[in-house]
Design a binder for these strands. Structure first.
Lengths: 295, 295
DNA sequence: TAAAAATACTCCATAGGTATTTTAT
DNA sequence: ATAAAATACCTATGGAGTATTTTTA
């Protein structure tokens, strides 16, 4: 069976007249009769009752006509959708995001995308560590990764979209929390809460290097996987943490955020994607992302 | 575009390999390449990215594949449905029903059909007068009509399925309501409530002829369109009515039903259908109807 | 008898096959 | 060097056209 059979059947069923249907289809009447007969034979079901004076649908023909119209419409709709996807007016995109941007950049990005690219179906996965995002990228599970460089792994296109100054998160009871800024040296004897897995989390590596520059090794008392947990532990008074400024969006009771002085260190936030991404939507998403990242 | 293109695209998209897809389709590889190219040209969209070592779907291709699978499934489903409709395992049927059977036979029929013919999608229209049913039948708005003979109009197949004895509906305060039966002569001075439109409602005609046989002309004080209204008026004490026994299913407070003695008159209930009904389901529905009518 | 669908046949467009070339790894 | 897709060309199936017959209201 071919779409031709369905198109022809639709014409005959709607005209209830082989001659007019043939005219509408720009073919002669005999081949139309033949094709309809072929269709009926293949289905094993009479769709039309013909006499020389009248053509009528059988019950099966009426049911088949409904489906036929649906199918022909679906064929057109599929072509339209493919064209829109190819043109970047429609698409699906999955975005991974590192913990510290999950509660500030990510919601703003999603809101902006929903408004500006209504044809886009975004799904997001927050609180992903950089290595997890990189493997998700290569596995095709996500299309864009928001993470902290450096990014190892070839075939990825990485673009820095923002620098986040680092700040200190302190429990409200901490003596250092009375000041309005702290130096790294102030934290020499502090109990740190840090992201887990030295080397796996970029923030963990950054913490070590900042402290090293001030001449000490941070005492890490708790390690966590997620930024939300990290802030919760600080709020609970279990220690202090150095976090990107964006994390302050998680404004838990019991936590004070203080700038680091002088020359506050910072970390980059980058967007990574596979070099050959099939989604034509991605360029438009990147444009929105770059703007939102600057705000 | 033809279904061939969709079938071929599906094979290639699923195999991600032209050679294997061609094998699966039992055709050679070159014509497969050609048909896919044709499809892409017609859509104006590349669906696949080919290299000699790898075939991949574009985003548009992935979207189109989803639709393609849906369409091909819909084509099969449509064929299956047409076959079931032709075989009488599935179908839609609209049944019209005269007022006096609307509250007794019709609900039992619908319940039985739902149980025994689960593939049937019944819709019912109760409280239809015979002439309205006949024109609805010829117009194809209903497939079966439950009405009181005689049925004028050719091309209809009419079959009596039951005789209903006539009974009298009286307001509870009526002096005749104390007895446990009435004669027609008892009603000589009664105020009657009858169905509207002499000639249009068969029950109206029957009332006149019954009274004529007893030697009087009934005094019709109110005329109603619907049986439910008729019984309501009796309940309100506005008069008496002669109704088929089945109407007693409408057991309103304030109404008493009494048999007519001696030789209670009766009326037929018939099912009518157009001679050339396209629905293969109809015979099975009639079988259920005949049984339910006897209960 | 007249309108319309079916049948008979003819033709050619194109789907599909075979042989070969191109290309990317 | 090799696997695989594209290209070139040929064949033949079958879709569509023309002429005619059949059917029924």
């Amino acid at each position: 069976m071919e779409l031709r059979h369905l198109r022809y059947f639709r014409a005959v069923a709607e005209e209830l007249h082989f001659g007019r249907a043939a005219e509408r289809l720009h073919i002669a009447q005999p081949p139309l009769s033949q094709q309809i007969r072929q269709l009926e034979e293949e289905l094993g079901v009479p769709l039309l009752v013909r006499s020389t004076r009248r053509v009528e649908l059988t019950a099966a023909g009426a049911a088949y006509l409904r489906r036929t119209v649906e199918i022909l419409d679906a064929v057109d709709a599929a072509a339209g959708q493919a064209q829109r996807v190819a043109g970047g007016q429609e698409g699906t995109l999955s975005i991974g995001c590192v913990g510290s941007a999950t509660y500030s950049l990510l919601p703003r990005l999603v809101r902006a995308l929903r408004e500006e690219l209504p044809g886009l179906d975004v799904s997001v996965r927050g609180e992903m560590l950089a290595p997890a995002q990189i493997s998700a990228l290569t596995a095709g599970e996500i299309d864009l990764a928001l993470l902290r460089p450096p990014v190892s792994g070839s075939e990825l296109v990485v673009e820095t979209i923002r620098r986040d100054r680092l700040i200190v998160a302190l429990p409200e009871g901490d003596p250092r929390a009375t000041s309005d800024q702290v130096t790294v040296t102030d934290l020499r004897d502090a109990e740190f809460i840090a992201h887990a897995g030295r080397g796996r989390s970029v923030m963990n590596t950054v913490l070590t290097s900042i402290c090293a520059r001030a001449g000490f090794v941070p005492q890490i008392h708790h390690e966590v996987e997620e930024t939300s947990t990290l802030v919760t532990l600080v709020a609970a008074g279990l220690g202090v943490a150095i976090v990107p400024e964006a994390t302050a969006a998680l404004g838990l009771a019991g936590v004070r955020y203080l700038p680091i002085a002088p020359d506050a260190p910072d970390v980059e936030l980058a967007v990574a994607r596979v070099a050959a991404d099939p989604s034509p939507m991605i360029e438009q998403v990147l444009t929105v992302l770059r703007r939102v990242a600057d705000e």
